[in-house]
Nucleic acid binder design. Structure first.
Lengths: 139, 139
DNA sequence: AATGAAATTGAGCCAAGGCTATAAAACCTT
DNA sequence: AAGGTTTTATAGCCTTGGCTCAATTTCATT
């Protein structure tokens, strides 16, 4: 048989957890993208960040100030955006997880295009334990 | 080799798409839960919905009015909440997808507890095409 | 060096999704 | 049938994450 049906508190916790994950997802995306831009172009400009995220420039500016508040990035007015050590570490982790999720999806038969698309949303909800299982499965 | 690197527009579209999916996720969760409650208890009361979602009761009320606005549910004041045909169909689809996602995670080695937890967030981002691939893989 | 273009920021708006506190309706139970 | 308890609803507030429009700063070009 499978398992006891979850208690009320357990059900609620699952949703609460999913909501918490969601609130971090956007920060993760921005940090990863800023890392990419610095690697590719040597700097991360607000305009480039906004274009790649598919949002208006002021939206990107606002997100960047959240990153700064969280200690993930720094920036000086009218200059580029930079990652703190914490930000760079997060970017690496997010990038690696993204690759693993795409690889797993493809390994179970999802076409690359679709895998990339779905991974963008899925990755944030993949816990460390699931990620470890994915890596093991891929080996 | 893998593929061309995605164009700027394609990258932006992925994020835009993930945002759209996210905006529907909460509605999906509520609809599924209301369906569960009706199946289990014969009715879906606001208090039960709130408790299971892990949310204050006025928050659930507000979400339900969104469901009504979207044509997924109906309710009369101080009475229970009911699903429209569209709502019931969505609930079925969401429930089936949830089960498939959990099954896939377990099939690649994720422990059941973790699979249930992660699936709660992941499921909303699994497209029809990925879902079909999952079902195929599980067979 | 001045000026026009481009990039960035700031102000102010909106909807979603949380919350608490309070009012109102429905329900039991005597 | 009255009164107290429970359930729902309403009001009002907060944060996040979008947007537009306008002001500012920087950059590039003449």
């Amino acid at each position: 048989m499978t398992q006891d049906s979850p208690s009320l508190a357990e059900m609620a916790d699952r949703f609460t957890h999913a909501r918490e994950v969601q609130s971090k997802a956007l920060l993760e995306d921005y940090v990863e993208m800023i890392g990419d831009l610095i690697a590719e172009l040597g700097e991360a400009r607000v305009a480039d960040i906004a274009a790649r995220m598919g949002v208006a420039q002021p939206t990107a500016t606002k997100a960047i100030s959240r990153l700064k508040r969280e200690g993930l990035a720094t920036s000086r007015p009218y200059r580029g955006v930079f990652l703190t050590d914490a930000g760079a570490a997060l970017a690496d982790k997010v990038r690696a997880r993204h690759r693993t999720v795409v690889a797993l999806l493809m390994a179970v038969g999802v076409p690359e295009e679709v895998a990339e698309q779905d991974a963008e949303g899925i990755e944030h909800h993949v816990s460390d334990r699931s990620l470890a299982a994915f890596e093991n499965f891929l080996r």
